[in-house]
Structures are given as C-alpha cells and as structure tokens.
Design a protein around this nucleic acid. Sequence first.
DNA 1: CGACCATTTGATATGGATCAAGCGATGTGG
DNA 2: CCACATCGCTTGATCCATATCAAATGGTCG
Lengths: 230, 230
Amino acid sequence: MLMRTAMHQTSSRQTATVRGRNGVPTGPHAVASSLDLIGAPMPFARNVEIYGEHESADYLYKVVSGAVRTYRVLSDGRRQIGAFLLPGDMFGLEAGEAHGSSAEAIADSTILVIKRSAVVALAQRDGEVARELWALTARELGRVQNHMLVLVKNAQERIAMFLLEMAERTPAADAVELPMSRQDIADYLGLTIETVSRTLTQLEHDLSIALPTSRRIVLRNRSALTRLNA
Amino acid sequence: MLMRTAMHQTSSRQTATVRGRNGVPTGPHAVASSLDLIGAPMPFARNVEIYGEHESADYLYKVVSGAVRTYRVLSDGRRQIGAFLLPGDMFGLEAGEAHGSSAEAIADSTILVIKRSAVVALAQRDGEVARELWALTARELGRVQNHMLVLVKNAQERIAMFLLEMAERTPAADAVELPMSRQDIADYLGLTIETVSRTLTQLEHDLSIALPTSRRIVLRNRSALTRLNA
DNA sequence: CGACCATTTGATATGGATCAAGCGATGTGG
DNA sequence: CCACATCGCTTGATCCATATCAAATGGTCG
C-alpha cells in the first residue's frame, strides 16, 4: 500500500464557487434531452474543482466540451478516480443528498450546470423525465460495476480495457487523444504511473498500439487488445 | 492473474424459472414501502440462481430472509461478487433493460419478487415512488463506488472493512454470523481464499477479532479495525 | 466410521510497487 | 535566442505483498 499517487495535487484550487446563475440555455452543443433546457453552460479551467466530495448535491452536470474526472481521496492520500467524463456525459447524479466524490476539469472545459431542484420538479410532473433520471443513474451504476471488474485484472488487461473504452467514446475510431495524464490513468486503474508507462511501451512493442506522442494513442491491433480485455 | 476462484461452481443449478406469479403480498416481513405491496414472496434454496447476467430485468427483488450474492463471471472463469444482500436490501435495480450481473441465494432465502412494470407504472403516477426508485439506485451507486475504493487497498484493509460493513448491517452489533463462504468473501474482496483465511487468523492473533467458528466472527477491537479501514 | 468439503497452514513464485535516475518537451529569465 | 529550470514521462534495479502450489486439519452428513 501507500503507493505514490497524486497526493491531491490540485494546486490551482480556485474552487469555482461562481456556479448557479441560471439563464442562457444550452446553446450550440444542445443534445436531445429536456434536461438541457434548464441548465447554464459554464467554463471551468484545467484542474479547477467543479464540486467537492461532501458538498450538497444541488446541481447536475453535463460536459459540453473538455473533460472531467471524478475521484475520491483515501485518508492516506491516495486518489481513486471513479470516472472520466467526455462531451455528452452527465455526472453528479450520484447520491441524493451530498456528492459521493469530487469532480475536476481535466482540461479547460465547458460544463452545463443544471439545478437539481428544477430537474426534480420537472420529474415530479413528467414521468418521462423521472424515468430518464433513473435510467441515467442506472447506466452509471452499470458503468461503475464494470469498472469494479477492471480493478481485479492484471495491468495489461486494465490498460487494454481503458484504451478500448476511450476509443469507443471518441469520434475518430482508432486514434485516441488522451486529455488526462499518466497519473490520472494510474489512479483510474489502480496502478502506478510507472506500471502504466511500462505497460503502454510493452503494448507498443507488441504492435498492439502506436504512441506518436505520449498523449496520442493509435490502436493498431484492436483484436489483440480485445483478447486481453478478458 | 488467473487466480483460482469459484469457477462458476454453482453445481445445483436449478435456475428457478418459477418466478413471477403474482399474488400474496408482503406477509409478516413487510417493511415500510409502497413497493412491498406489489410483490410476492418466493423461496430460493441455497446456491439457486435468482436471475442470470443477461436476462431481461423484468423484476425487482427484496430480501425478506436469508442472503444473496450478485456477481459477474469474467471470461477466464474468475468471479467478482458485487454485493451481498441481507434482509431488507433491494436488488436487481441495476440496468434498464437487462441485468448487469447474476444473483444467487447464499443460504435458503425468501425473496420478495416485484414486477418491474408494475413499479414503473406506479412511479409514472406517483412522483414519490419515482423519487424513491431513483434514490434507491443512487444509494446502490454510492455503495458500489465505495466498494471500488476497497479494491485498491491491501488485504488487511479489505478484510477489516468487510467485517465492519457486515457488523454494521447485522442486528447483534459485535458478533457477525457470516452466511457466505471464504470463497465468497475472497471473490467479493478480490483476494484468494488463502489470503482471506490468513488475514483473519492474523487479526485473531492481533486480538482484533475472535473466531469461535469459521462462520462466526466477534469484533473485539473495533477501533483497531477502523484504523485499518483507511 | 469414512468420505467429502471447507478452512487453515506452509513453502515458493511473481507481478507490480517502490526507489532512483535519465530523457524530452515546454516555458522562463537573462 | 540560448541556458536552464521544470514537468511529465520513460526506463532500470530491487523488494514485497499476495498468488500459487501443496498438504494437513476439522467439521458435517450419510
């Protein structure tokens, strides 16, 4: 235990408290959902906190552009990243009362901030919205259950599955531009940066992937990766 | 990888397909919830499957008596247990369409089986029920997120937290009667039976616990366990 | 009593953590 | 525009926690 990990390194902690002024709806990135109609898009700079672990969950969020990580910090300082959110993803649905994890922008991002009470009120009147909320949360639950499985696999399998997961969520099928650092990946997969790095170079030698730059990964043998993804 | 684990050992696979006849509501174990009113209690024998991983999720379930495990099996045969359900716990809320995991009775159990369509219909009319459903799923999400954290800790920490978790959910505060085998615990915590066993005897030597029998565990130094539970 | 199954205990192997150093890219001040 | 500091990433050497392999023990049921 006690592996080196990002010791809550969020140095630039401006904790954007500015949130919550309603107004301008959706804008150009509007995705089909009634939820989009009652939110306001807000900018968050790289590494800025969107919400903290025990803050009351007064808002729901949706990534418009950029990328977000949700995480929890163990008492010994280790950080476990629960999810990476990309454009189109909603987050902050976790609990009823308080957030179960913190959320930070990985890169400069625009986040749609939606007042929870407005959603709840809407759901109260419209069973369709209520069902959508439930489904969203259930889907997130499925995702987390899946991630649990990942955490019992070996390093290669974890990395392979991470790459496939990212590729799947990215427009350009076989080239992934990673918004997150090696440390982020490590904390997501329950590994160390060294192991992440080593495993990636190993996959490169196997010709399963190519690494034009450290943040850009080309899947060149998807079936090999799928095979690893037990 | 490829640790020995229950290679889907469910030998007595009677796959109780008998479910779904509605009728007699709740009975003596009724807990306060409108959901209880539309379910039928059904018996499941030890090790009998309640539902399978990709079956369509037509029912919700609530443990009346006994105990249940939900799990997924990796392609290499390893099994990851996602949750242990005790009396009062609901399960099967996972996805919208199909179940994301399988569920089996750990011991002879009585399970309240609730038609999902009935619940959905009820939720459609009653916003309160809808909110309850959402909250239930959100709570489960929180539990799973928490369990993810456990899977990155060391063996002692995992066991300590497992014991505290079980003790918390058990009436008699400091003595836990475990319904599940060492293999179940191992598959829940991402360890091997040997490590589970060794860690328990080690905690016994530390005087943190006592083991009158292998299935009965007495917490005799709760603060020591809490300290481990980083 | 004997067979079977779950659990414990022992000996050894190994994957990934840890410790440490090097390397390339990016940015800053002179 | 270059020298240098910084940061993120990679690579190497060693260590350790837990898996694996193996055998003994104990409890349960016919």
